[in-house]
Design a protein around this nucleic acid. Structure first.
Length: 264
DNA sequence: ATGGTGGATGCTCCA
């Protein structure tokens, strides 16, 4: 079973790029973030034509929005609205083997890493805390779960191009990374990418549009994640980051990350 | 220290 997470940055604009992803990684399940469309404008027909008949969408006009596309039947779709806000930032569904897949788009948090000056930053910190609290209250580490998405935090020193230069940059501040670490530790989530490629190897999944030559400057960050609960850990076979997707014509600033799990 | 790009939307917000 292959599962991809990708912040596609507009599913309507980049529907053709989904075809590229399928040609290279051939996933069974795709979790998308930032689809940037209301449900009624989601390209259902186009996605079905690519071989994904099972589709769960939680859209929003203009911003955010998440979706799960699957070749395999999905059951028990559900949406969390953490903190009671109206943003479309989470959707979950259950795969045929009973694994519960959670797809998150964590708030980016604005530019200034200060709750008082920048309410978006406080919202982001509170959102990560609310994720941790929800799983602590509603699930256990013995449940079979996969958590994927754009978590908008590069937690480790080697998840950014310069640890020192990014310590005060939103996505890598100690306030964010300590919260994400605490969340991860809560249910003993396995970070699939780091399990297979331990530090100090550099791993990035996002390069800003504002860098002219992203490959030459390589100022990347690892913002997109795939976590597994321990019952699934023995099934983890492989993880691929599709770095070349950053060069696709009109590409997203995030690249797809695919994990392969052995059948249960 | 600054400004750099992109998408959806509609004379701006969010990333």
């Amino acid at each position: 079973m292959k599962l991809t997470t990708w912040n596609i940055n507009s599913v309507r604009l980049r529907l053709p790029l989904l075809k590229n992803l399928i040609a290279v990684h051939n996933p069974d399940v795709i979790a998308l973030q930032e689809i940037k469309t209301a449900d009624e404008f989601f390209p259902y027909e186009g996605v079905r034509a690519l071989g994904f008949p099972h589709i769960e969408v939680r859209g929003q006009k203009g911003y955010h929005g998440v979706a799960i596309l699957s070749k395999l039947p999905l059951t028990k779709p559900h949406r969390l609205s953490l903190l009671g806000h109206g943003d479309s930032r989470h959707i979950t569904a259950t795969l045929p083997d009973g694994t519960e897949l959670h797809n998150f788009y964590v708030p980016a948090g604005g530019d200034i890493p200060d709750r008082v000056e920048n309410p978006y930053f406080g919202f982001k910190l509170d959102y990560v805390d609310a994720m941790r609290e929800w799983f602590a209250a509603q699930r256990t580490k013995k449940d079979k779960m996969i958590l994927v998405g754009d978590l908008n935090v590069a937690p480790g020193e080697h998840d950014v191009w310069s640890h020192k230069q990014l310590l005060k940059i939103v996505s890598h501040t100690p306030e964010e990374t300590s919260r994400l670490d605490q969340f991860q530790a809560g249910l003993d989530w396995l970070d699939a990418a780091r399990h297979l490629a331990p530090a100090p190897e550099k791993l990035y999944t996002w390069w800003s549009y504002r860098n002219k030559d992203w490959r030459a400057s390589n100022r990347g960050r690892r913002l997109d994640h795939i976590w597994l609960t321990q019952p699934l850990a023995p099934r983890l076979k492989r993880l691929d980051t599709l770095t070349d997707a950053r060069d696709w014509p009109q590409g997203s600033d995030h690249v797809p990350v695919t994990v392969e799990l052995q059948s249960s």
